[in-house]
């Protein structure tokens, strides 16, 4: 069975990988084909090693004792696995507060972004009205404008509104991005117009069409947007850095960063345990929703 499957894949890959002329004898084909495959696998292993070694090193270091992290020559595996780092980090830092803040901000931002983004995208994709195209151009145009260029006036405006040094500021900052509108609009445009037409004839209002037809049909796109937004907010460093002065409000990224700069004799093993903890939720979310991540990013690139 597996052999059969292999030959099947073999033949398909054959055409793609080194595309030999069909007239060639089968022995010639398989030799060239095997060489190509071998090169492919070697390249894959090299790339994978380059991509994953830093993670491997991080996790291994989180299980070392404090001195072992910097030992020369480098020790890739800890002598004894110091699991207590993962216990100590909870008591020796405010990591619980940081996680709570990060979780709160990420969840609220994701909800707001998905709701307002898909709502606005319906207007852009399925409605015709004056000013629509100009407005959309404004949205698209800001994708080329880096946040770093307007972070100062934005900070001043939010400070004037009394929101600096608050989690609300971080939520507002992230929740209304043009990207979400763009992503959802791309998806809605693939949904046949006849569906909403038929619903209109049946007497559904535009709002009901959005809620009863578009939302259920766009679950994959909503999932993409939700996952990308959540991860981005979870990992955001600059926003919290500028707005959050009060340590009680720190997010995970700020907290871990302060861990590096504040302690003179930083216990790096402990720090690595904290970093690993900060990555685990994102890794799990990513593994579960990988398909949606990839689709979301691919869609955003389709219409340069």
């Amino acid at each position: 069975m597996s052999e059969l499957l292999d030959r099947n894949i073999t033949q398909r890959t054959l055409r793609k990988l080194d595309d030999p002329k069909p007239r060639r004898t089968s022995r010639e084909r398989s030799a060239r084909y095997r060489a190509g495959r071998a090169i492919g696998y070697i390249a894959m292993i090299v790339f994978a090693a380059a991509l994953l070694t830093p993670f491997f090193w991080m996790i291994m270091s989180s299980l070392k004792s404090a001195n072992e992290v910097f030992s020369v020559p480098v020790q890739w595996l800890p002598e004894t696995f110091v699991w207590s780092n993962y216990v100590e980090i909870w008591s020796r830092s405010d990591i619980i507060t940081w996680i709570r803040n990060t979780l709160l901000v990420s969840t609220v931002v994701t909800l707001l972004q998905v709701l307002t983004g898909s709502f606005a995208a319906y207007g852009f994709a399925k409605m015709r009205f004056r000013g629509r195209d100009v407005l959309f151009l404004l949205y698209i145009g800001t994708i080329a404008v880096p946040w770093q260029s307007y972070m100062i006036p934005q900070f001043i405006l939010l400070t004037e509104a009394g929101l600096s040094n608050s989690l609300v500021a971080i939520m507002l900052l992230q929740a209304f991005g043009a990207f979400g509108v763009f992503l959802m609009k791309q998806y809605y445009e693939t949904i046949p117009e006849e569906l909403s037409e038929a619903a209109r004839i049946d007497g559904l209002s535009e709002y009901s069409i959005w809620r009863k037809i578009m939302l259920p049909l766009s679950v994959p796109a909503l999932a993409s947007l939700a996952l990308l937004t959540f991860v981005n907010t979870w990992n955001d460093y600059l926003g919290p850095l500028i707005y959050l002065r009060n340590p009680d409000l720190w997010t995970l990224q700020l907290g871990l960063r302060s861990f590096v700069s504040n302690l003179y004799d930083t216990n790096y093993a402990l720090l690595f345990a904290g970093l690993t903890i900060s990555i685990v939720p994102i890794a799990i979310i990513f593994m579960l929703g990988q398909r949606y991540f990839v689709e979301g990013i691919a869609t955003s690139g389709l219409k340069g």
Binding site: T116, F119, A120, F124, M127, G131, Q154, L157, L172, V181
Partner: peptide, 18 residues
């Protein structure tokens, strides 16, 4: 109706970006 769809997002987008 079209504007009403865009408004919730546009409020945030306009005030915090434009």
């Amino acid at each position: 109706v079209g504007w009403s769809f865009i408004l919730p997002n546009f409020l945030g987008f306009g005030l915090l970006t434009l």
